[in-house]
Design a binder for these strands. Structure first.
Lengths: 316, 316
DNA sequence: CATCTTATGCTCAGTTTGAGCAAAAGAGCG
DNA sequence: CGCTCTTTTGCTCAAACTGAGCATAAGATG
């Protein structure tokens, strides 16, 4: 009987005003997420195991950690992509984790680099409006895909809901649905790779469909994007990505970066104010370009428990 | 090196006006969830594997299925509880799934029984007000626990937030936090069992702390309770638990049963109306006890995507 | 036919939300 | 210095939503 191996993969996220970043490890050909084999003898819990080798492999420790999802589909794991670790005949189960950090140290002693997550999902960034590539490339390809295959109506529906086609709204949390749709439709590079097609011959089809990752790592990353986007709305996890003190504009920029969506400034402030999540420090950011802004800090003692435990996200 | 086994456990939920029910299998001593070993050779995906043996083991097929969480803590798995299946020296990882169904067939050819989930979590049912047992038994025990242990303040905080002590609100989604707290505080039967204590000698401490389950199944069930309670608020999954047509009161009763919380009738209707999730059929339930109620059905074609994709839950 | 019970309609004040106008406070520059 | 630019911060206003009730409708029961 085939043995089972459990892999732990971590999506370590940091962010600044311009983008959320994810820690990527370099491999031959493509990047991946920091990942390691779960050690059934050594690791008492997944989370401890994860913290151990994230520290070893990337040089630092995420503050907040949460489990994302466990992937076990055959065909998706593609262990060949990382021959050093694979027991080639084992069935690989991978447990994905999300970790958040506020520091983004460039410690080049480790072979890990920070990459904007929009490099992997260019269609997810709507801060300057809906990316033209969606209607120019993705939508036509998905329409074609749903025409041809079986269950045509269902495919069309999924495509419309996921990408907000035909006047449906764009819902930022659905990042995973979108990636899976692209994968199924053969528009993600990994889909070709996993069926063993010769990628060089079809390279053109993936232009603009985002940078691929090894194994099923981009799928795990998509899960993380969707989860984090949802979570910041009802839990104050966004502050895990912020420095100790920050201006309200900086906070808004980071929220916008995570959501991939611009927000209404005054209403964002009003809601934040009412939530009681932050308090002013009395000091000001001597600024470049406008009126100085007060520095705020997260009130770690928020017991309030009222409605908004997350930040409000009033669309611009 | 220790080998790894992956177990799949399913929380299969049905509901009627009086309670949500969970499908339980009988074992020597305690009940458990339907569960089986994941077959790395046969099962292409977890979900397919799960559907296979749920059908084999309980005689029917859940409609809606979603993954809950993957538990891998050593010490929690307690494989001895089910000696028929265990490879005694393997490390057991268990992947929990939630399945919803509207039929609750009592097929006694299979050794599965439907139990109200409040039998396992009596403190979770607030439909007739906060259960007295919380303040009478749980709260004092938790206060005592937080006094003694290390990190006293943190413990006290967790207890207050989880159980809504000292005027904090009761938040129904936190079912898992509550169960884990009771486990850590030694108030769940399983906690004693897992450290190998002689349970018969301490039986009294668990009076009213709910019926235990084998292995970590009650923990998985608590995860399911919390997840479902959250989910019905933003996805129309509640209708997976309803028959084809139903009155609004029946729907409300089921929502209340799931939440463990009474709702304001008129406002529930108003919100449901606005959501567009249901439509009247024109036929009426000839009733026992009052004016006949119109039968409604779920509009499976809701593309609306506006705000409320779930049912609103205006507290009574 | 009066009474009981549940369904259903409607009101009203308080709150929240979406959208915007306007003033305040530095920086840079002729 | 006074003007312009930029960003922060304060404030308004109508529309929509919510929480809490009152009132009526429509069968069943005896």
């Amino acid at each position: 009987m085939t043995s089972i191996a459990v892999g732990l993969s971590a999506v370590i996220v940091a962010a600044d005003a311009s983008a959320p970043y994810v820690l990527a490890t370099r491999h031959s050909g493509a990047v991946g997420l920091p990942h390691g084999r779960f050690d059934p003898d050594g690791d008492r819990t997944f989370e401890l195991g994860l913290r151990n080798w994230v520290r070893a492999q990337t040089g630092f420790e995420p503050g907040y950690v949460e489990q994302l999802y466990t992937f076990g589909d055959r065909g998706r794991e593609h262990p060949q992509a990382d021959p050093d670790e694979a027991a080639p005949d084992a069935r690989l189960i991978s447990v994905g984790y999300l970790g958040l950090t506020s520091e983004r140290t460039e410690d080049s002693a480790f072979d890990a680099v920070w990459r904007s997550w929009y490099q992997f999902f260019p269609w997810e960034d709507h801060r300057d409006g809906r990316p033209p590539m969606i209607d120019a490339h993705i939508a036509p390809a998905l329409y074609k895909w749903s025409e041809h295959g079986p269950a045509s109506a269902a495919r069309l529906d999924r495509a419309r809901m996921a990408f907000g086609l035909d006047d449906r709204p764009w819902i930022e949390e659905r990042a995973l649905e979108r990636y899976e749709l692209l994968y199924e439709a053969g528009l993600a590079f990994e889909a070709m790779r996993d069926i063993g097609a010769d990628s060089s011959s079809t390279d053109g089809a993936f232009a603009g469909s985002g940078e691929p990752m090894i194994s099923d790592h981009r799928r795990i990353l998509a899960t993380a994007v969707g989860r984090l986007r949802g979570k910041i709305k009802y839990r104050p996890v966004i502050f895990e990505l912020m420095p100790e003190t920050f201006t309200l504009s900086q906070l808004q920029k980071v929220v916008e970066a995570v959501l991939g969506q611009a927000l209404h400034k005054q209403n964002f402030r009003r809601a934040l104010d009412k939530s009681g999540l932050v308090e002013g420090t009395g000091t000001f950011e001597t600024y470049t370009g406008g009126r100085p802004a007060e520095l705020y800090r997260f009130r770690r003692d928020v017991q309030r428990e009222r409605a908004a435990l997350g930040v409000a996200t009033p669309k611009a």
